[in-house]
């Protein structure tokens, strides 16, 4: 048994080693944050002095953190819902209909994914100033929609190409009008893509820091900007707890959604 392993040679060993190192490099920081969030010590670093939930408890009393968390959740949910509605509509128009300037519209919708966030951040701010609009939470939501919409359009478009046009044609030939066809056939078949994009957008919005720093109204913090401002003061162990919560939300939700999407895809095929 071992002989065959040895036979694969040095090259194979090197690949294994590098793979392990890459994984360590990727996940060690995350692991450290999670482990340290349960550290009883005053300081946010090693060594561990005991296991405790005190930093989580402390977090729950921190008004600033709670309100930042709330803000982030609201912004992310709103962004996800609005993006999905707009994205589905856009994808359907782009895949199913012919209209002049289609290529251009497609490019414009996808463009924000290619432009650096800093540029987008400044750009939107300048636009708002020019239009004499105050910086409100709605601006933040609007910005996040702009950032995340390309991904929804791409995900839904890909799925829509897979949903063969004949299903819709069959539905209409049986007497369903356009709306009924959408509700009964197109939408259910798109569900996996819609769930996926809801989650994707939620995470994009929830995690965003660069653009959010430009767009948030003064005095309002989102989770990432809150963490950043806490870091400026000190590396408190509270931040580890907060980081762990962020990880749970941004990793757990997509996993949950992925499972849901797969379930929907299976029953929808």
């Amino acid at each position: 048994m071992n002989a065959t392993n040895d036979n694969r040679g040095l090259g194979w060993r090197a690949v294994q080693l590098v793979t392990v190192l890459v994984y360590i490099f990727m996940f060690a920081p995350i692991l450290v944050v999670i482990v340290l969030s349960f550290n009883d010590s005053q300081f946010g670093g090693f060594p561990m002095t005991g296991f405790s939930f005190r930093w989580y408890a402390k977090l729950m009393e921190n008004e600033a953190v709670l309100s930042a968390f709330q803000t982030s959740i609201w912004v992310a949910v709103l962004t996800a819902v609005i993006c999905s509605v707009l994205g589905v509509a856009a994808a359907i128009a782009l895949v199913r209909y012919e209209f002049p300037g289609k290529e251009l519209v497609n490019t414009i919708l996808i463009a924000p994914a290619l432009v650096p966030e800093t540029v987008l951040g400044v750009g939107l701010l300048l636009l708002m100033r020019w239009a004499h609009q105050p910086r409100t939470l709605w601006l933040l939501v609007l910005g996040h929609i702009m950032l995340a919409l390309p991904y929804v359009v791409l995900v839904v478009q890909a799925r829509l190409i897979g949903v063969r046009r004949v299903y819709e044609e069959a539905a209409m030939s049986l007497g369903a009008n356009r709306f009924q066809t959408f509700r009964e056939v197109t939408l259910p078949l798109l569900m996996p893509a819609i769930v996926a994009s809801l989650l994707l957008v939620f995470t994009i919005s929830f995690d965003n820091i660069t653009a959010s720093m430009f767009w948030r109204p003064s005095g309002v913090e989102t989770m990432p900007t809150q963490i950043l401002s806490m870091l400026k003061v000190s590396i408190s162990p509270e931040i580890n707890a907060l980081g762990t919560l962020m990880i749970v939300v941004t990793v757990g939700l997509p996993l949950l959604g992925g499972g849901l999407a797969r379930y929907l895809a299976r029953s929808g095929r």
Partner: peptide, 29 residues
């Protein structure tokens, strides 16, 4: 419009709604 014509259409690749049961497929129209 197509949905107001009373026409039965059978496609080469069946085009049965994959997310609906046989009953719901037939009952659709």
């Amino acid at each position: 419009p197509i949905h107001k014509r009373n026409i039965g259409l059978v496609f080469q690749n069946y085009a049965l709604f994959p997310h609906k049961s046989v009953f719901d497929n037939i009952a659709f129209g």
